[in-house]
Design a protein around this nucleic acid. Structure first.
Lengths: 226, 226, 226, 226
DNA sequence: TACTAACCGAGACGGTACGTCTTGTCTTCAT
DNA sequence: ATGAAGACAAGACGTACCGTCTCGGTTAGTA
C-alpha cells in the first residue's frame, strides 16, 4: 500500500508537508480557488515549487488534501439525544463547513475536475466524502441503540441504504447552498429532517425499497394513504 | 431586453452564434471544462476570438448558455400516471441529462465559479435551474389533481416546500452521480422515491414543518413510531 | 525569401523589435551572457515573453541579432593610406569591438552553441561574420588600386585567399584577446601586420599557394631564403 | 599544493575520478556542452552529485579537465624534416583534435565562460593552451637547429614572437573550423603555411617588428616590394 | 579489534529560468 | 459596425538544473 518506503536518500520533510497544506488553506481563504496558484502556495509555505510537485500532481490533488484537512477538523458526531436532533445537527454543521471560504468553491471545483479524472475522483471520495459518510453510519447505529430504527438484517441493503441517505443529506445541503444559494438555517433543517425521517421509517419497513417496483399506475398508495 | 437595438452597421451573424454554441458543446465533450479554451472554441467555430468576447463576457457565461441549450433540448415532464412514477421518471431523466459528457463536466464547474460571482449564479439559476424547478411545480399540480397530494393553503409555505423538494431531488441525483460516482438506475430511483414520498406525506400534514421544532430529547417519535 | 508577407491580422510592432534588441544589449552589458534571461529582457523591453519567442527561437538567436547590431554600428573601413595602415587599423578596431562587454562573452558563447546547431551557425555567419569579411575585400581592392597588391586572375583563388586572410586576422585577434588574454595594442598590431604583409606578398606570387606542395624535406626555402 | 594532506578517513576513490571524466567526455560527445548537466554526468558515472562537487567547483572546471585529458592524449610533435612540414603537420593535427565532438563543442564554451571568470581562464591556459604552445617552441628550436630560422638574441622578443606565432596558428585554425565552419585540409594548410613562413622570415629580420611603426603613408613597402 | 573520520549513494531541498499556454484586448484589412 | 486574423501584455503552468543538504552505510587507517 505504502510506497516501498524508501530508506535511502534524504527523507521528505514533514515540516514542508505541514507548511504547504497550511499555505494552501490560507491561500484558499484569501484568494479563492480560482486565483490560487502553485507558485503562490510555494512562496507562502517557504518552499520550492518542486517540493509541491514532488508530493502532489497538481492544484487539484493539493486542494483535495487541504480541504480534507479542514473537513477532518470540523468532523464531529455529537450525540444530540434523538435521531431528529442528530440529523438537524449534522445538516447545520455540514452547512457551516460548506460556508467556510476555504471549502465552498474549492470543493465544487475539484468535484468538477473529478468528472474528467477518475483518480482525482477516487481521491476526493477517500479523503473527504467517505469520512463524512461515516457520520451517517454512526448516527444510524445510535438510532438503533435507542430503538428509533430497527437493525437491518441484509448487510448489502444496509450499505445501499446508508449510501442513499448520505447522498440525500449531502446533496440536498450542497444544492440548497451552492445552487439555490439560499441559507441552511434551523427552519430549513427542520423541514428537511421531517422529510428524511419519514423516508427512513418507510425504508425500514420490510421490503420497503423494493415494493411497488414498476412505478406504474396504481402505485399511488404510499402518499395516497396519508 | 436588447440594447438600444442598433440599426446601423453590419448586423451580427446569427450563423456565428449557432456555430459558437455548437463548438462549445463539442469542446466540452472532447476536452471537458478544464481544458476548454476560448481560443479553441473560436477555432472550432471558424470565428475570431473577438466575436466570442463581443457576445459573452468569458468562458463561464459562454458555457452556461451552451449547457442551458442542452438542458432545453432534454426538458420534459411526461405524465406517468402517478406521483411515484412521475418522480422516478424525472429522477432518471435528470440523471440521463447529467450523464451527457457536455453537462457532466460543466455543471459543477459553473456552480463552483458561481460561488465567487453572484451575476453568474443568477444566470445559472435563470437559464438552467429554474426551468427544471418548473417540473416540480407541474408534478405537484398533477398530483394534487389526482388527489395524491392535498392543496396547500399558504402560498409561502407552498413555495418553500417546492424549493425543498427541488433541492432534495436535484441535489441527491447530482451527488449520487458526480460525487459518489454511482449510477442512478431504476433501483436507486425506487429507493429514492419511496423516501421522498413519505417525506411529502409528512410535509403535507398540517403544521408538519414546524412540529417538534427544537429537536430536543424526547423528539424521537416520528421514526420511533415505526 | 520573405515569409508570404501576411497581410491579415495585426502587424508586428517594429517598436517592440527595437526595444527588445536594445534591452538585450543593455542586459548583456549589465549581466553578461551567462546571467541574461529571456524574462529579464522582456521586462526591460516592456514586452511579454511571448513577443520575444514569436520573433526569436531562443536566447542564442536573440543574442546573435543583438551582437550583430553592435557590430554593424562599429563596422568601418577607413582608408588609412597604405595596406599596412589599413591592416593595423582593422586589427585594433576589431579588438576594441571584442572588448565591449556586450560582445566579448556573447560572441564566443554563441559560436560554441553553433557547433551543435547548424542553423545557428549559419545565422552567426550571415549576420556577423560575413559582414566583417567584407572589410577584407574592400581593403584588398584598395591595395590593388594603390598597386600594393596585384589583381588576381582566378576568381576562385581570390575568394579562397580572402577567406584565409580573414580567418587569420579574426582568429589571431580573438585568440590573443580571449584565449591568451593579452591586450591587442599598437605593438602587437605592428608585429602581426608585418607577419601578414609578408604572407600576402608570398601568396600573390604566381603559384604561391601550391608551390612546394608536399611539405617534404627540402621545402625550407621560403623562410630559408631570408 | 594539496590541502594539509589529510591522512585520516577514507581516501577518495580514484575509480570515481576516472569514471567522472570518462562520463563527462561521453556526455560532451552525445549532448554537447549546452545540454550537458552535472546530474547527467553523475548518473553516467554511477556516482552521486556530491562526489562531483567535492572534486570540481562546477561544470566549467569539470569540462576543462575533461578536455585537457583529450588534448593530452593527442599531443605530439613529430619532426617532419622541415619547418614548412612541421607547420603543416601541427595545423592538420590541431584541426583533427578540434574536430573531435568532445572538444569542438566544449572549447569555445569554456573560453566564453573564462572571459567572465579569471580563475577559469588561468585553468584553461595552464591545462590546455600552454601545453600546445610548447609545440611552437619545440618547432622553432628544431628549425633553428636546421638553420631554417636564426637564433634570436633578445629573449623577450623571442617570447613575444612565439606568442604571436601561437596566436596566429591556433586562432586561424579555430576560426576556420568553428566560426567559418570550413574544413582544414591539406590545401588550406599549405596556403596558411606559405603565409606564415613569409611572416616568420620578416619577423626574424633585425628590427622587423618595429620598423615602419606608425603605419602612416609611405609604409607600403613590405608588400609593395612584391 | 575497535574506533573514527572522511568518504560514498541516494535523493530531497530552495531557487531560478525555461518555453508554452491561456486570457482578454487591440490593431489591421476587408466586408 | 462586424468579422477574421493574429499580435499584444500579463502571468501561471509544469519541467529542468543548479548547488546544497541530509540521510544511512562503507572503508581505510589509526589506536
Amino acid at each position: 500500500m505504502s510506497p516501498p518506503s524508501r530508506r535511502t536518500g534524504r527523507p521528505r520533510s514533514v515540516e514542508a508537508d505541514r507548511a504547504i497544506l497550511g499555505a494552501t488553506r490560507a491561500a484558499l481563504v484569501e484568494l479563492g480557488w480560482g486565483k490560487l496558484t502553485m507558485g503562490d502556495v510555494a512562496a507562502r509555505a517557504g518552499v520550492a515549487k518542486t517540493t509541491l510537485y514532488r508530493r502532489w500532481a497538481g492544484k487539484n490533488e493539493l486542494v483535495v488534501d487541504a480541504v480534507a484537512a479542514v473537513f477532518d477538523e470540523h468532523l464531529m458526531s455529537a450525540d444530540c439525544g434523538s435521531l431528529r436532533a442528530d440529523i438537524e445537527n449534522v445538516v447545520v454543521r455540514f452547512a457551516e463547513l460548506l460556508e467556510l471560504p476555504e471549502t465552498k468553491t474549492a470543493l465544487m471545483a475539484v468535484v468538477a475536475e473529478a468528472t474528467q479524472d477518475e483518480a482525482l475522483g477516487a481521491r476526493v471520495r477517500s479523503a473527504i466524502v467517505d469520512r463524512q459518510k461515516r457520520l451517517v453510519l454512526i448516527g444510524r447505529e445510535r438510532a438503533q441503540l435507542r430503538g428509533e430504527l430497527p437493525r437491518e438484517e441484509d448487510p448489502g441493503a444496509a450499505a445501499r441504504n446508508a449510501d442513499l441517505i448520505f447522498d440525500v443529506i449531502a446533496g440536498s445541503v450542497v444544492h440548497r447552498l451552492l445552487v439555490s444559494a439560499e441559507p441552511v438555517d434551523a427552519e430549513w433543517a427542520q423541514g428537511f429532517s421531517t422529510l428524511l425521517l419519514q423516508g427512513l421509517a418507510a425504508a425500514a419497513q420490510p421490503g420497503g425499497t423494493t415494493e411497488n417496483g414498476g412505478g406504474g399506475p396504481g402505485g399511488q398508495n404510499p402518499a395516497g394513504s396519508v
